[in-house]
């Protein structure tokens, strides 16, 4: 590690390119921590969005029309408004109104941290997308396959669980993978409420050293790297679930 450090210090002295984040141990640790936080945000938000989207999908199967309508309202609202505005509404609006993001009267820490707000916000936002993805996955299951299940005696619930959902999920995989990629990109938004993820840390570093160009490049590469890793994971998952003869 120190060989690399020395090389970058030398680079700084020779050319002025200051990749302090690499050779400065403290900054390096802080930045890596920022990347880890970004990954944690993405993973939690992904799980949260799957939970919310799955819930919506289940509610949509119910016969009670007002419930289905409620899900539609939720989905349309969160798909057609900006994530940042949703985050501000949640964190500054709901957070302060219900005293979730505020400090207590004698300095007690808030009930929900900014990190958690971002996870909740992203889960709600992308849960709407997952709900739509699952809906088209379910609609893509051929009617005659569903009827074949019914003819074999599967009641609606069993048919959903044993036949429709496994097929819908496989069909939805590419779109769910894309959803994951979108979530990874969106975690940068956490910057706005001071979550110390990669972009935020980079900002701290460049305000100190004025090495904006270098830091921006590092951040860009970081996010591209993260996207690449997640895309790979999804591709591996697709391969693992692949059934011969199924798929596009």
């Amino acid at each position: 590690m120190s060989m690399v450090d020395l090389w970058f210090e030398g680079l700084n002295q020779r050319t002025g390119w200051n990749f302090s984040v690499i050779y400065n141990a403290w900054e390096r640790a802080k930045y890596i921590n920022g990347v880890i936080i970004a990954v944690e945000l993405a993973v939690w938000a992904f799980l949260g969005s799957m939970l919310v989207g799955g819930l919506c999908m289940l509610v949509r199967q119910s016969r009670v029309r007002p419930l289905r309508w409620l899900v539609t309202v939720y989905v349309e609202f969160f798909r057609n408004t900006p994530g940042l505005a949703q985050l501000y509404f949640l964190f500054f609006g709901i957070g302060s109104y219900f005293q979730l993001s505020t400090y207590g009267p004698s300095g007690e820490p808030p009930l929900l941290s900014p990190f958690q707000f971002v996870v909740i916000g992203l889960s709600l936002q992308y849960g709407a997308f997952v709900a739509e993805i699952l809906r088209s996955g379910i609609e893509a299951v051929p009617r005659s396959t569903v009827e074949a299940a019914k003819s074999l005696g599967y009641n609606p619930t069993r048919a959903l669980f044993h036949v429709i959902l496994p097929l819908a999920f496989r069909t939805s995989l590419p779109a769910l993978g894309n959803n994951m990629a979108q979530i990874v990109k969106s975690t940068a938004m956490a910057y706005a409420i001071a979550v110390p993820e990669a972009l935020y840390v980079a900002h701290e570093i460049w305000t100190e050293h004025f090495n904006v160009v270098e830091m921006m490049n590092v951040v860009l590469l970081t996010y591209l790297g993260l996207m690449g890793v997640f895309t790979l994971i999804v591709k591996l998952l697709e391969r693992w679930l692949h059934v011969p003869g199924m798929g596009r």
């Binding site: 798909r79 057609n80 408004t81 949703q86 509404f89 500054f92 609006g93 302060s96 109104y97």
Partner: peptide, 24 residues
Amino acid sequence: RPGLILPAYGLTLVLFFAYVFPIS
């Protein structure tokens, strides 16, 4: 005014929604 935060941000959400939803 602390009671203003929710309506103010709510308004931005409504504005975006009113424009984006019909196009969608």
